[in-house]
């Protein structure tokens, strides 16, 4: 069965969720059962009003660190490699439109290539199962 994701809008605070079903609790305002189905145009207009970007290596690295904070994985302890990777995803964002993993390569199939936007679903990868790390080594199992 194909799962179809849709846009949902919290009618209290305009939080946008993209998924098969809406969250029961709004993560922004805490309202219960407040999400209503909305169309792409409406969702895009609301999201376009967010005036920020992740455009420097430091900002990219911070987003990665925040992701690891409550997880069973952490960042590679080689700061130079992390810097190289953060520069790489930004380079790919500029040239290819999304923050693709610099250690993968796009196939040309946009849907398929979403699987290599960093961070990817790395726990499904062979390298995670065998060595406890993502393909590029950026995320490693916490010791």
């Amino acid at each position: 069965m194909t799962l179809v994701k849709k846009f949902w809008r919290c009618h209290i605070c305009n939080d946008i969720h993209y998924g098969v079903k809406p969250p029961e609790l709004c993560p922004t305002c805490g309202a219960k059962n407040a999400f209503v189905l909305c169309d792409r145009n409406e969702a895009m207009q609301i999201m376009a009003s967010a005036d920020y970007s992740i455009s420097t290596p430091a900002e990219v690295a911070k987003a990665w660190i925040d992701l690891t904070a409550k997880s069973d994985f952490e960042l590679w302890d080689d700061s130079e490699a992390v810097k190289t990777l953060s520069e790489g995803v930004l380079e790919n964002n500029r040239n290819k439109g999304l923050k693709y993993c610099p250690c993968r390569i796009t196939t040309g199939d946009k849907e398929k290539d979403l699987n290599i936007v960093c961070p990817c679903n790395f726990k499904a990868q062979k390298t995670w199962k065998e060595y406890g790390e993502c393909w590029c080594g950026l995320f490693v199992r916490r010791k």
């Binding site: 080689d78 130079e80 490699a81 190289t84 990777l85 520069e87 790489g88 995803v89 380079e91 790919n92 610099p102 250690c103 390569i105 590029c136 080594g137």
Partner: peptide, 10 residues
Amino acid sequence: FFGRECPHCR
């Protein structure tokens, strides 16, 4: 085949 910003390639 290598990537310029791939640390393992470096």
